[in-house]
Amino acid sequence: MSILEAREVSKIYPMGTTNVTALDKVSLAVGEGQFVAIQGTSGSGKSTLLNMLGGLDHPTTGEVFFSSKPLGPLTKKEMARYRRYSVGMIFQGFNLITTMTAQENVGLALAFAGLRGGQRRKRADELLDRVGLADRLNHRPSELSGGEQQRVAIARALANRPKVLLADEPTGNLDSTRAHELLGLLREMVTKDALTILMVTHDHELATSFADRIVLMKDGRVVNGSDG
């Protein structure tokens, strides 16, 4: 049974008088504990699909299911809770809050979940330790390398124990060595912690090396590998 599923999802953006179809009836099912890579050129709609699955955007038509439950009927508040507890997201640009330390960045996600001071710090430290940053707790993003920043982002994404991690070009700003290290960590999380990962990338080599399954996208459609 799939934990996350897109069924006939389309996204159409109105652009002046014409409409731009970013996603065209995309169907995709991700099984629990899988590491799935979505590969495609830029503009193929892979990031748009990821945003739908992450609850940041709504499909024009079609439906996204999490644990077989549709996201469509959720209220804004329930959507926020879905993003908080059900899925975690990381991005190419890390999207850390630059004025906060690593610990505070992770703590912020915990704060939204209502965790108080001491408890929050303890959990943030655990998470940062898990991604190998036990000695970088009080560093700000500007004092960390790209790889380290993305690890902080991973720790933050996993703060409230989601079952699924959605990664949008997580290695896009990293050199090859750092990229391998990072994907090694993600792979380990899938294997050891039974995390489900859906990663968008344009790097075929990385996708084949670490993912269980590769989904190819082109012009807003899935070319192959939509199920399985």
Binding site: A80, R83, R84, L108, F112, N160
Partner: peptide
């Protein structure tokens, strides 16, 4: 704007 976007992405409600 970006910071607010981040907060929303990691689960902040509109109310918060």
């Amino acid at each position: 704007t970006r910071e607010i976007g981040i907060m929303k992405a990691i689960g902040a409600e509109d109310r918060e």
